[in-house]
Design a protein around this nucleic acid. Structure first.
Lengths: 247, 247
DNA sequence: GGTGCGATTTGACTTACATCAAGGCACGGG
DNA sequence: CCCGTGCCTTGATGTAAGTCAAATCGCACC
């Protein structure tokens, strides 16, 4: 499903050496040494996608793995009657693909313009055989995603519309945070937000307006948002106040 | 939170050789050879819990890993005001614990009387070092759980109460299935079902009654259920009809 | 068999969110 | 510049599920 696009073409030939890669220290390759990076350089390739473009369809054959280099992608599942639920948000350094499974269980869509770093299935599986730390990192990342998915189950199952919207804004603002007064551009349309939160577009819009009216957030155009106090926003999100005592 | 129990005491000394273990071929140890099993035999230990007993509290120190041998446990997260969401259902062969994390992100509770096979943290991490196939199996299991969690996000975010209840009954009946006319005992109370589905007890009860009245399921006492046609139930669950074309 | 208590069901009423339906705003193209 | 076309916002109304309250059931124990 490719949309006709009027914009300037994307640079098809994004080219980067691994050692200067922006996701070098967080992606699946984070523990590779210089020698290993050279090997990766020789078998990886880049591909870019336009906002809205479909990367993989639900059930498609999936014979590559990839890391998000720049931009934002979404994972979603749908029911036959068209109801749709986003089940994951992929940001730079996040991983796409499933060693040991040939087909994709979810649709993957570019939420913004997006560049991926890809490996074909066979060479990637060879990497996993030869570099055990890649498997280890993949396990770590899978467990982190599992935690994130389960956290989101609490949001979907038990939070009110207002808390849901605040929770999502918090996720987005936190990774863009520069000091207490955070501001950024939302990488999601209202529709994508609704699909993520299990709400309708209208309800999302109404809750955004309400939060704005009460001064919890500010809106600049449709996509820009700011927040004078993330702590207040966290309160609206119904977040545990116990300050995340982590291990 | 230990309840006072009037029932007969559980056998504290459940003892089993690994090679005769009921979850031998599905748990994290599924790929161990006989020699490795002997090692496991020497460092594992069993522990049993009463239905309703708490195994780990949210945020607790977790210095063991475990596999469910018999019974059923639940994973859940709660908000401070008491709202609660189950984020996982653990059945025999499922794994508890998180190599690399010292604290539990979820509460683990025995939903029925339950027996676990445990390893202390240090010996288990030694196993992971020495037997790479254990790491591989753990990755596989983590990815399967991730798929299950995401499937459930669709249920929580987009399905109606009736579809939710049907979806849960389907999960339980399918693993108890003997032919088309499935019947089993629910391992969950109405409250646990409600917490799993993001509903209230009353709504769960009403939907069960409605499904019974329409002949989709039959109820025997509070816990026993039967279903003359799982296909009809799947229809009520709003499940994709494309017959799960798997890889 | 009776009694007590927690679990479940059922009923009456309320409410948060969905649905249906206009409008407004921004941006690109003729 | 004006007009389309996609987003987004706002309003009026409907409804599925929540809440509050009261039976009823089922089991453990007497």
């Amino acid at each position: 499903m490719y949309c006709i696009q009027m914009n300037a073409p994307l640079p098809e030939t994004y080219r980067l050496q691994c050692h200067e890669c922006p996701i070098r220290h967080r992606a699946v390759c984070s523990r590779c040494d210089n020698e290993e990076l050279e090997l990766l350089d020789s078998i990886k390739f880049y591909r870019s996608f336009r906002s809205g473009e479909s990367i993989v369809l639900e059930g498609d054959k999936l014979d590559f793995t990839a890391s998000v280099v720049t931009g934002c992608a979404t994972l979603s599942r749908s029911l036959e009657d068209g109801r749709k639920q986003m089940v994951g948000l992929l940001l730079p350094s996040d991983f796409i693909g499933r060693p040991g499974r040939a087909h994709a269980p979810y649709e993957v869509t570019a939420a913004t313009d997006l560049t991926l770093c890809l490996f074909r299935r066979a060479p990637f599986e060879a990497l996993m055989r030869d570099m055990p730390h890649i498997r280890d990192r993949l396990l770590e990342m899978a467990l982190d995603e599992l935690d994130a998915a389960r956290d989101w189950m609490l949001v979907l199952g038990r939070k009110s519309a207002r808390e849901k919207v605040a929770s999502l804004l918090l996720v987005v603002l936190r990774r863009a945070a520069t000091g207490a007064n955070a501001r950024t551009q939302l990488p999601l349309t209202r529709e994508a937000m609704a699909d993520y939160l299990g709400l309708t577009i209208e309800t999302v819009s109404r809750q955004m307006s309400a939060l704005k009216k009460e001064g919890v957030i500010s809106l600049e155009g449709a996509r820009g948002i700011g927040c004078p106090s993330l702590a207040d926003l966290a309160l609206e999100a119904g977040e545990d106040s116990d300050g995340d005592i982590l291990s």
